[in-house]
Structures are given as C-alpha cells and as structure tokens.
C-alpha cells in the first residue's frame, strides 16, 4: 500500500458516500445515470469474486464488501425507492454497446486464459468505460447538480490517483500490470473534459453546464 493508492481508495469511497448522501438528502436520483450504477455493480461483482478465496487484509476485504453492498444499494434506491425521480429518458446510453465489446476484448486480451482472470480483465475494461452513460446523460441534460459534479470529480480522481500508485509501484516494487494501467489511463482520459469544466466552473461557484 502507498499514499497514492490509499488516497485513491478514499476518493472512491468519498464518491460513493457523496452519491448516497445526495440521494438520501434530496430523496431523488435526478441527474444520475442508473445504467452507470448497474455497470459499476457488474464491475465490482466480477472483480471481487476472489473475496472469499484469497484474503489480502482486513482493509481489502471490508472495502470490497462495502463497494459491492453500496453499488447494489444504489441500484435499489434508483430503481425502487426513488424510482419516480429516475430520469430514464435522459439515461438512454445503450449498455450493451459497452458490455459486449468489453466482454469480447477480455477474452482476447488477458494475462491468463482462466475464468477468474478473464472476469477480472472484463471488470477492469468495463470500469474504464462504465462512466460513459453518466457523462452522456450530463451532456444530454446540459447540466449537472453541483453535488453530482463533486461525485464525478471524486470518482474521476480515484483512478487518476491509481495511475500515480502504478508509477510508484513500478519504481519501488517493480510491479506493473499493463492491462490495469492502459484501462486506468483510458478511464481517466474520459474525465478530462469534465475535470476542465469542474475546475473552471464549479470551483468558482458556478453550476456545471455543458456548452449546449
């Protein structure tokens, strides 16, 4: 563990807590893409299958359990409790356009052709594009609530911090995982446009609005 990975995990945790807080306080999931949340639940489910078979640390296990539980709880809130506030008209990104190609790629490009490894690879590739329905929804609605932009900033920062973690681990541990690094860079690049808007607008107290 290094400071970048710890900050990254905390940023990820913060993002999830911000989202839950937003939905709980406003009793609404307006502006949030349910499809992205479904993809995140799929990411965690396929990535943490070794939850019971390999023990790394208490921290690792509790974080995995929290990520899995919170992702399904978020889906429950969006599609059940606060269903009336779910904006399905603007959440129209076709998930199959992401899941199918990513599934195929995971079969073709992986470290080992084993079920657990292919599922882990699928999860890494899927996570890199899972935010697209959410970004697509923000671009369709043309704006996002300020708390939603904080959620996206924390979520985008987590994988950016992980990139620093991989640089650190490469030089200090000699650890390097090309698949995770490439997917992590793609994932972070997808946020660049949003990062720019967040820093130039939201941090100046303005609302996040995309040029129509």
């Amino acid at each position: 563990m290094n400071v970048f990975r710890l900050l990254g995990d905390m940023s990820h945790l913060l993002a999830i807590l911000i989202l839950l807080l937003k939905m709980w306080k406003t009793r609404s999931c307006a502006g949030i893409s349910g499809k992205t949340q479904i993809l995140f639940a799929l990411v965690f489910t396929t990535r943490y299958l070794d939850l019971f078979s390999s023990f790394i640390s208490i921290y690792n296990t509790t974080m995995k359990l929290f990520f899995i539980a919170s992702s399904y709880f978020t889906i429950f809130l969006m599609y059940s409790k606060f269903k009336a506030t779910y904006d399905s008209n603007h959440d129209s990104f076709r998930m199959e356009f992401l899941v199918v190609p990513v599934g195929g790629l995971a079969f073709l490009v992986n470290h080992e052709f084993l079920p657990l490894e292919i599922l882990w690879t699928f999860s890494i590739y899927l996570e890199s594009v899972a935010i697209l329905p959410q970004l697509f929804m923000v671009s369709k609605t043309g704006e996002a609530e300020t708390i939603t932009s904080h959620y996206l900033f924390a979520l985008g920062s987590y994988r950016l911090l992980y990139i620093f973690n991989w640089v650190y681990r490469y030089y200090f541990d000699g650890f390097f995982d090309l698949i995770a690094v490439v997917a992590g860079c793609v994932q972070t690049i997808l946020y660049c446009d949003f990062f720019y808007l967040y820093i130039t607008k939201v941090l100046k107290g303005k609302k996040l609005s995309l040029p129509a």
């Binding site: 990975r5 990820h12 390999s54 790394i56 650890f175 390097f176």
Partner: peptide, 10 residues
C-alpha cells in the same frame, strides 16, 4: 510485468 502477483488492488 509480474501481473500474476496476487490481485491486492481494489
């Protein structure tokens, strides 16, 4: 590229 190392990242 010891990616096969135990998956210790979240």
């Amino acid at each position: 590229k010891d990616s096969s190392a135990k998956k210790d990242e979240l």
